[in-house]
Each structure stands twice: as structure tokens, then as C-alpha cells.
């Protein structure tokens, strides 16, 4: 369980850095979605199922969809 927790946190940090480093905004959104999913699992491990549920629905679902909608109106690549 401890190893799983450490793995999740490491993946979380990697995702957070990768979101900031990517130039392709579409990939950045997908990485951000993965970050949200990891965060949701971490909330579950921290015994906050309420927050985990909201994070999975809002963070991984609705936020990325709204970002996709915004990208379809602007440009895909960061300058």
C-alpha cells in the first residue's frame, strides 16, 4: 500500500511538470486529466471519498471537456 501511494505521488508530480512543459495544448489537457485521476485516487487513499468523487467528475471529466471546447475555438499549439 505504501509503495502504491509513493507511485501515485511520483506519477502526480511527473504529470504536473509535464503539463507545464508541453507545447501541444491538446496533450497538456489529456495529461491534466490523468493528473486529476491520480489526485482522485489519492483522495480515496486519504479517506476522503466525497472529494474523490467530485474530483473524478469535475477534474477528469468536465474540466477537460471545457478545455477541449476552448481549444476548438483557439489555436492548438503554444507559441
Amino acid at each position: 500500500m505504501q509503495l502504491f501511494n509513493v507511485l501515485l505521488v511520483v506519477f502526480l508530480v511527473v504529470c504536473a511538470i509535464a503539463v507545464e512543459r508541453t507545447k501541444d495544448l491538446l496533450s497538456a489537457i489529456i495529461i491534466f486529466s490523468a493528473y486529476s485521476l491520480m489526485m482522485s485516487l489519492l483522495w480515496l487513499i486519504l479517506k476522503a471519498p466525497d472529494v474523490a468523487l467530485t474530483e473524478a467528475a469535475i477534474g477528469a471529466g468536465v474540466t477537460s471537456l471545457l478545455f477541449f471546447a476552448v481549444i476548438s475555438k483557439t489555436k492548438r499549439y503554444e507559441k
Partner: peptide, 28 residues
């Protein structure tokens, strides 16, 4: 989740977000 908000994890916000997501999926 909305109806069980006061006896188990969840509540109006999470359940409402899920309901909204289902129709967003339909839109997509």
C-alpha cells in the same frame, strides 16, 4: 448520489456534475 447525499459520500454537487456529464456525453 444526490438522494444518498446525507447518509453516504456524495451530495448535490457531485451527483449534479455526474448528471450534467451524461448530457455532455450525449452532446459530444
Amino acid at each position: 448520489i444526490i438522494l444518498n447525499g446525507h447518509v453516504s459520500p456524495g451530495g448535490g454537487f457531485s451527483g449534479g456534475a455526474l448528471l450534467g456529464t451524461s448530457l455532455i456525453l450525449y452532446t459530444l
